[in-house]
Amino acid sequence: MREEYCRQIIESLPYAIIITDQQGRIEEINAQTALLFGYSQQELHDKKIDILIPERFCEQHHKDLDSQNDCPPPRQAELGRNLFGLTKEGDEFPVRINLSLLENNGNNKILTTIIDMSEQSDIVRELKRVKKELNDFVDVASHDLKAPLRGIRQLSSWIEEDITDFASDNTKNNLALMMQRTARLERYLKDLIIYSRISHVLDDAQNINIKALVLSVFDLQSPPKEVSIVCEETLPEITTFITPLETVFSHLINNAIKHKNKGQLTINVSSQEYPTHYSFSVKDNGPGILERNHEYVFDLFKTIKPRDEVEGSGMGLSIIRKLLDSLNCVISVSSDGKNGSCFTFTWPKR
């Protein structure tokens, strides 16, 4: 009864199950094996399992079998992923293979599990194709849009110089608004390109003094006199990828400066160290973010204030989240909407 129950389970599995002796001779297969490879149970019985593997992989498979026989229990191994199965018709298809040793009073068997990876491989190829098309589109769009935007900005500047002595205040305001909107489009384009290429920003790891990095990023923002920054002594010196970390700090500090109230703004940067990662916090005493907007602020093109009040593409925090997601890190915000805000993100140790 127990044996029949196990047989029913094996027959119901959606992947190929093959039981061989320790020399690799096939003793039993399930229905999915016959369907996948095109052989019947009778055709495969007592045949070497090599019949189901392209010749170029047979030598390695023999080594894997020997390894299973020699290693101590528990004896399981998942073989390399760039493997292929061979059908009766001679067609190859990508597979994932797992070997397990079944011990039975010296009459040991090898249980081979074979999963058809054709669909997954097709999906991966399609994703690569789409990704390439998107990258190509971004390259073309950035090239074809940057030039006319620069031209509009330059023409606007020349017109401003030509009409400054006689144009009405209304005309000057409209021209200034056009230049402002052109500059915003340039920022949109720049941030869209950054967002689309998040997965490519990893560079060589370097030894970085976080305090020096933060102060450098702060200076590059050309902050007004009423804005200051405080770096806590907890900021470490670490070995990591400088470009993505610099990008995160740059957007968080810029975000604090853009949304500041009138009066003094203080930005505080601190950190904590954990066994597997660091936690960095960028805190300010600005206007804060209402709790209902805490998740909203990370969405693409979302801004709390109208863009004519606070210039920006609405992509800074989205860029940060996508970048941190690519590194399996997280970011969160805490604020009561009145007394500043604090963005905290994790960063991996090497």
Rank of each mutant, 00 (worst) to 15 (best):
H251E: 13
K260Y: 01
E273A: 11
A205I: 04
L213G: 02
I210P: 00
A256L: 01
E246C: 10
D191K: 00
D169A: 15
I289G: 02
H251G: 02
T240C: 14
T164M: 13
K172T: 04
V282W: 01
K283G: 00
I198W: 01
Y278L: 03
I267V: 10
S216Y: 07
Y274M: 06
N268H: 14
G263Q: 06
T234K: 01
P223S: 13
W158K: 14
F166Y: 15
F166I: 12
Q206E: 15
D191A: 01
M179W: 03
V227L: 03
E291H: 14
I257C: 08
P236G: 05
P236F: 04
K283N: 06
S216N: 14
I194F: 08
V201G: 05
N268F: 04
Q206I: 03
N174T: 08
T240W: 06
V201M: 11
P275L: 06
N255F: 00
I163Y: 08
N293C: 06
I208Y: 10
Q206V: 05
L290Y: 07
I198T: 14
N209T: 09
M179G: 07
D191I: 01
V217T: 11
L192P: 05
D219C: 07
I163C: 07
N285A: 09
I210L: 02
N209C: 10
S157E: 07
D169W: 08
I257P: 03
H277P: 06
L192W: 13
K260A: 01
N293G: 02
P275Q: 07
N261I: 05
V248L: 03
A205Y: 07
I238V: 15
N261H: 11
F249A: 04
V201C: 07
L290A: 14
D203K: 12
I289V: 15
S216T: 12
D284Y: 00
L215T: 07
K283I: 02
H277E: 09
E273Y: 05
D165T: 10
N293R: 03
T276M: 02
N268S: 11
E237S: 10
E246R: 14
L177H: 13
G286H: 00
Y274W: 10
E232T: 14
I238N: 05
P275T: 07
Y188M: 14
T164K: 15
R187A: 08
I194H: 05
N255E: 03
N254Y: 01
I289Q: 02
Q272E: 14
N207Q: 08
V227W: 01
K211D: 04
K211P: 01
T243F: 10
F218L: 02
T276R: 02
K283C: 04
H251R: 10
G286I: 00
V269H: 00
L265M: 04
S250V: 00
A212C: 05
N170Q: 10
